[in-house]
Design a protein around this nucleic acid. Sequence first.
DNA 1: CTAGACCTTCACGCCGACGGCAGAGTCAAG
DNA 2: CTTGACTCTGCCGTCGGCGTGAAGGTCTAG
Lengths: 127, 127
Amino acid sequence: MRIGELARRTGVTPRALRYYEEQGLLTPERRPSGYREYGDRDVDTVHGIRTLLAAGLNSAVIAEILPGLPLPGQRRPGPTCPELLTVLARERARITRQMDQLEASRKLLDAVMGADAPSEVIRTPQR
Amino acid sequence: MRIGELARRTGVTPRALRYYEEQGLLTPERRPSGYREYGDRDVDTVHGIRTLLAAGLNSAVIAEILPGLPLPGQRRPGPTCPELLTVLARERARITRQMDQLEASRKLLDAVMGADAPSEVIRTPQR
DNA sequence: CTAGACCTTCACGCCGACGGCAGAGTCAAG
DNA sequence: CTTGACTCTGCCGTCGGCGTGAAGGTCTAG
């Protein structure tokens, strides 16, 4: 499929898809005309990219871990590189911290919304 | 206290504290010399600001909800304005969505790390 | 009185994930 | 063969939360 259809099927703009390619996240074929030609699995890949981006991973990190992306119905070996494992673990920890932050923030909002009893200021280990 | 001490006590740079004032999040007194003079409660306020910033709220929104910030040992009435409640609810929903995103992303990372069984690509309702 | 730590106000720089536009080529239908 | 939808490659713009000087006042210990 061409870039427009992939855009429709993923809800991602063509501009963003070209950007992902520029960052090495997608490597579509090229027609003689220069048009990009995507495969069906790219739909899943794009969804994976978006999920990871939404979690605050930058494109460089995503590019590293994308080869290990579990695509449906595909058996894969464990993670290849040990330093990749380090990156993965670090990002995982970051995500967990971020979730704690979010929970603290939500509690704070709840306290502002239903302010009846005086509550302690939520103090997160800021970094 | 002056800006340096507040910076030390909060772990936030003076530059950031001035920025918060510029955004209307802090309104310290001024000495005749022009030096900013902060109160003890500003320490808690700054922690609140950081918690909310870390959750993705922008300074404009924080400025709106800061007056309702529950400071320790202070009894407060319910939320003042109905449109403020709308903002709060929207941000709260955003945070919850974000937490779901993070969980999905973490699962994806786990799948990449311990890739033994073929797993479905996590598909989050991207927006 | 002086040094050095601290403070002030500009004002430009940065980063990352795109948006938007220009100018030109491509493709399929009628 | 034309038309209109689609695509290409540049390249500059944006936004938010600061970082980083620069050029100059202030404060306090010795």
